[in-house]
Design a protein around this nucleic acid. Sequence first.
DNA 1: TGTACAATGTAGCCTAGGCTACACATTGTG
DNA 2: CACAATGTGTAGCCTAGGCTACATTGTACA
Lengths: 154, 154
Amino acid sequence: MSSPKSATVEPVNPDLAPIEQQAAGFEAVREARRSETAEDYVELIDDLIKAMGEARVVDVAARMGVSHATVNRILARLSKEGLVNTQPYRSIFLTEAGADLAQQSRERHRIVVEFLCALGIDEATAERDAEGIEHYVSTETIEAFQTWTGKLAK
Amino acid sequence: MSSPKSATVEPVNPDLAPIEQQAAGFEAVREARRSETAEDYVELIDDLIKAMGEARVVDVAARMGVSHATVNRILARLSKEGLVNTQPYRSIFLTEAGADLAQQSRERHRIVVEFLCALGIDEATAERDAEGIEHYVSTETIEAFQTWTGKLAK
DNA sequence: TGTACAATGTAGCCTAGGCTACACATTGTG
DNA sequence: CACAATGTGTAGCCTAGGCTACATTGTACA
């Protein structure tokens, strides 16, 4: 290496965050990413059941924009994790845990969208951004969003 | 299936978004996810170079909270994509494209953090949340954040 | 100068989540 | 009732990004 230095030490330069803190942050993001798929799927399945009476693989695939093979693979995982109940050639059902997660996800999603709209962002963009954002927002931030949506609305 | 229905058609129930629009949204999120790793790495590498004079695999690994093997694998991809220059056993350099990307990422990151802080969120939380959020925020929303940070600061 | 140690590189394994191609079920209809 | 069409399941391949274990290189110092 160009200059040997002792080892992985705290920065001489104070511009950088503490190592452990930064690493924990990235780990938290990776953790959030892991649950993202599950949240998106149970939320969509719940929407479909509410709106159409049932959730079918073909509809989930169309709305997620993926192949039905991908949906099947993910459903197998969600089933293993106790979020959905599936039987061959039957439509998809949420377990109680799955329904709870869907409910929470929908709520977070709603809060984020409403907040973005309160900032003056058009609804379509707010929807798109919320889809990506909602999984990475801490409880504190969600609460702040809620508070500010009320304040900005006046 | 429990009720046959014709096929994947527009919802009878109007609660659901149009299929193509929803699918495009999820596709956009997947697209953003693909560039997320690249952005995080070039930003970190740039930070390390600025703060310590060079970016080494061992430091990147410590700060990302992953093994050095993972860093090497990702550096190989970034190198293939023209974002970094690496030579065996030498420290890591950014290409011009990599430096540009780092600059943009840092800017987005800063805007998001400042906005969250303006909402009253403590800086540590703002930093953590920004790490996840910054990759999924549209240009419109970034601009709105900037505008509101000014307004809220008064 | 040799050698131990730290850093880097590499191989191989894993999960997640994409895909296509092909196999099998279900169901509406001729 | 049979069969075509649609939906569902499965196999196999790919990339990304985790890991551990082991090999190799560079550097510092005894």
